[in-house]
């Protein structure tokens, strides 16, 4: 090895070593102080469901509709909203699976979407790739996910934005994992939303693997599970081609002893209660959560009072 190549090797080793050490430190700082401090982010919720075991906590699982429609504080002081943006049933079934590993007796609330069982995972920024179960769930076995800085490459901005939104919510209200918009759209804007949405064809879909897994989880526990269909704007329901199949499935689900289905899909709420046709705004979520609490009090006064 001549002088040049030996110098170059030394340079390269120094460069890789220093970058790795700084990366490792920065990643840890960022993970602990930003990602895991943003209660509203998917990554925080994933980390929480895997690591925290709070005996009295009543979890609410689901997609962005769960995140925006359920006001945890109204339903129960021990409720936490685990709703995550952009995900599908595949992920809330994972949340349920993790929850049922815990030695708890508190009920579980699941927001059930009428599009049924889907497989989309949403953005990678919803996850924290520190656990093998998450790598399996998202099928992200890339080597990059083990390297400091590279494992969050391209998502730092997202995490930081989420953190800032959580810390300084401008037009949103934050409540134990839930995020609620307090803006009310004008009639014309809302109508535009309805027209845009009406172009989409909606349908209920069954995924036999997910259904099988869901039933096996339900049957393996004696914890009460409430499947709640939170309100949709009526224009959305009109787009569904096979709603009957969805309700037939829910009836099947209700045959399980520890399951109760609460259907609010057809509750007619005014336009000003919606953020868009499938998500409620802050006022809508308050109203719906009160309605839900009234029902829960009747069914399960021990846990909801």
């Amino acid at each position: 090895m001549n002088l040049s190549t030996s110098n170059f090797s030394k340079f390269l080793i120094k460069l890789i070593f220093i970058v790795s050490v700084i990366s490792f430190i920065l990643t840890k700082i960022f993970e602990q102080n930003i990602i895991l401090k943003t209660q509203t982010s998917g990554a925080y919720k994933i980390n929480k469901i895997i690591n925290e075991d709070l005996e009295n906590e009543i979890p609410i699982f689901g997609t962005s509709r769960a995140k925006s429609n359920y006001s945890s504080s109204i339903i129960n002081k021990n409720c936490f909203n685990y709703g995550v943006d952009g995900i599908s049933s595949k992920i809330w079934i994972f949340f349920l699976e993790e929850e049922l590993k815990k030695n708890k007796q508190k009920p579980i609330i699941i927001n059930f979407d009428l599009n049924g069982f889907r497989n989309y995972l949403g953005s990678n920024s919803n996850y924290i790739f520190n656990y093998p179960s998450i790598k399996n769930l998202t099928n992200q076995h890339s080597f990059n996910n083990n390297l400091p800085l590279l494992k969050y490459y391209g998502y730092y901005e997202y995490y930081l934005t989420e953190y800032l939104k959580y810390k300084f919510p401008l037009n949103k209200i934050i409540d134990k994992g839930g995020v609620y918009s307090n803006s009310i759209f004008s009639d014309s804007d809302f109508n535009f939303n309805i027209i845009r949405r009406s172009k989409l064809s909606e349908f209920f879909k069954i995924d036999s693997n997910q259904v099988k897994k869901l039933f096996s989880l339900i049957n393996a526990t004696n914890r009460k599970i409430y499947f709640v269909i939170s309100p949709y704007h009526k224009s959305v329901l009109n787009n569904y081609s096979n709603l009957k199949d969805a309700f037939q499935f829910l009836r099947l689900l209700e045959k399980c002893e520890n399951v109760k289905v609460l259907n609010y899909s057809e509750v007619e709420l005014k336009n000003e209660m919606f953020f868009n046709t499938s998500h409620l705004n802050y006022n809508g979520s308050q109203l719906f959560s009160k309605l839900l609490l009234d029902s829960l009090k009747l069914i399960d006064s021990e846990n909801f009072n």
């Binding site: 460069l15 220093i18 970058v19 700084i22 990366s23 800085l149 490459y153 391209g154 998502y155 730092y156």
Partner: peptide, 17 residues
């Protein structure tokens, strides 16, 4: 060395996915 360390860290931290 210093230039490359700073630039690589900026890329890793602020690079667009």
């Amino acid at each position: 060395l210093l230039f490359n360390i700073i630039t690589i860290l900026i890329i890793l931290f602020l690079g667009t996915n």
